[in-house]
Computed example of a mutant assay.
Amino acid sequence: MIDLSLIKVFIIIYQTKNISHAAERLNLSQPSVTYNLNRLRKILNDPLFERDKFGVKPTKLAQDLYPDFYDAIVKIDLAIDAAKNFDPKTSNKTFRLGVSDLGEICLLPSLMQYLIAYAPNIKLEIEEIQCDKVEEWLVEGFIDVAVFNSTYTIMPKIESRNLFEEHYVCIANKNHARIQGDLTLAQYLGEKHIAIKSSTGHVEIDQKVKELGYHREVMLEVPHFSVLENIVKNTDLLVTLPSRAAKVYQHNTDVNIFKLPFEVQPFHVSVNWYKHRDDVEARKWFCRILKNIFSTL
């Protein structure tokens, strides 16, 4: 791989046709420019420039390389400039967002409304959170930001800020055959349940039930809550889920929300990112928008 600084030296020498003039434009000493040119000559196995009475002239290889080298440097400079001067109104950046099921249900509709109104060229790619992989994904840049319950996920390399506190409730079909008033522990344990896979961070409920010495019968396990609307509407299965997601279901379908018949500690939903050196301003803006939207939910 060729050092980009060598490519920039090559381009300026090509444009000025003079080593001294190139050094002035690059704000380098003439020996430094010559040293870098010699490094590139060695890599490409070609003199690249030959002396003439006015300075230097490019070889055939240099003439062939210049258009591609120049286009590449222009694109890199434009990308760096865009990152430093991020403007959501004109940016066409793609953000890769890792979210839990709570984020899918509660955040995405409002986030998309905001982007359409205020950042219409920005694109969004969603990745379902896997708690055991999220730190690696953030560090490697597979996702830009992750929003989820990170209470049980240790990520020493990751920056994190709490967005809000959340607690669990239970929802059931509004016409449930056996549950209409307050939900008792006997009723909760006597019914069949839909559960969310623990890999998404939802472990509190089964941990608490086990601590109490009980067991709940899970008939269906799903990767996220967003697939449940028709199932809850047409069965007597219970779902234990965060209160904000429950309110979305209550708004969209005929369900009742019940307080759990046992105490479960609330949890914090956080926004998480890795301090990559690129796109700092864009990432700050995106995290700020996520926080602002969640504060209204």
Rank of each mutant, 00 (worst) to 15 (best):
residue 5 S to A: 10
residue 7 I to R: 09
residue 9 V to Q: 01
residue 10 F to A: 07
residue 12 I to E: 12
residue 13 I to V: 13
residue 16 T to C: 04
residue 19 I to Q: 01
residue 19 I to S: 00
residue 22 A to H: 00
residue 22 A to D: 01
residue 24 E to N: 13
residue 31 P to G: 00
residue 31 P to Y: 12
residue 33 V to H: 04
residue 34 T to G: 02
residue 39 R to I: 15
residue 40 L to D: 08
residue 45 N to V: 10
residue 45 N to E: 06
residue 45 N to C: 10
residue 46 D to L: 03
residue 49 F to T: 09
residue 49 F to P: 11
residue 51 R to I: 01
residue 53 K to N: 05
residue 54 F to V: 10
residue 56 V to S: 01
residue 58 P to Y: 08
residue 59 T to R: 05
residue 61 L to W: 05
residue 62 A to C: 08
residue 66 Y to C: 04
residue 72 A to P: 00
residue 75 K to W: 04
residue 75 K to F: 12
residue 78 L to E: 15
residue 83 A to W: 05
residue 84 K to E: 15
residue 84 K to Y: 09
residue 86 F to D: 09
residue 86 F to V: 09
residue 92 N to F: 06
residue 94 T to M: 12
residue 96 R to F: 05
residue 101 D to I: 05
residue 102 L to T: 07
residue 110 S to Y: 05
residue 110 S to D: 11
residue 110 S to H: 13
residue 114 Y to F: 13
residue 115 L to S: 03
residue 117 A to E: 09
residue 120 P to S: 05
residue 120 P to A: 06
residue 121 N to D: 09
residue 131 C to W: 04
residue 131 C to Y: 01
residue 134 V to Q: 03
residue 134 V to M: 08
residue 135 E to G: 06
residue 140 E to Q: 14
residue 142 F to R: 15
residue 145 V to C: 03
residue 150 S to P: 00
residue 153 T to P: 04
residue 158 I to Y: 00
residue 158 I to D: 01
residue 159 E to Y: 11
residue 165 E to L: 08
residue 166 E to T: 14
residue 167 H to T: 10
residue 169 V to L: 09
residue 171 I to H: 02
residue 174 K to D: 15
residue 181 G to C: 10
residue 184 T to E: 06
residue 188 Y to H: 15
residue 193 H to K: 11
residue 202 H to Y: 14
residue 204 E to R: 06
residue 207 Q to F: 10
residue 207 Q to T: 14
residue 209 V to Y: 03
residue 209 V to Q: 09
residue 212 L to I: 13
residue 213 G to K: 13
residue 213 G to S: 05
residue 214 Y to A: 14
residue 215 H to E: 15
residue 215 H to D: 15
residue 218 V to H: 11
residue 219 M to C: 10
residue 220 L to C: 08
residue 223 P to E: 04
residue 225 F to V: 14
residue 226 S to E: 07
residue 228 L to V: 08
residue 229 E to K: 15
residue 232 V to Y: 06
residue 232 V to A: 03
residue 238 L to Q: 11
residue 239 V to F: 07
residue 239 V to S: 10
residue 245 A to D: 03
residue 249 Y to T: 03
residue 250 Q to E: 14
residue 260 L to Y: 02
residue 261 P to G: 04
residue 261 P to T: 03
residue 261 P to K: 14
residue 267 F to H: 01
residue 269 V to G: 00
residue 270 S to F: 02
residue 271 V to F: 00
residue 274 Y to E: 04
residue 277 R to F: 15
residue 278 D to K: 13
residue 281 E to P: 00
residue 296 T to H: 08
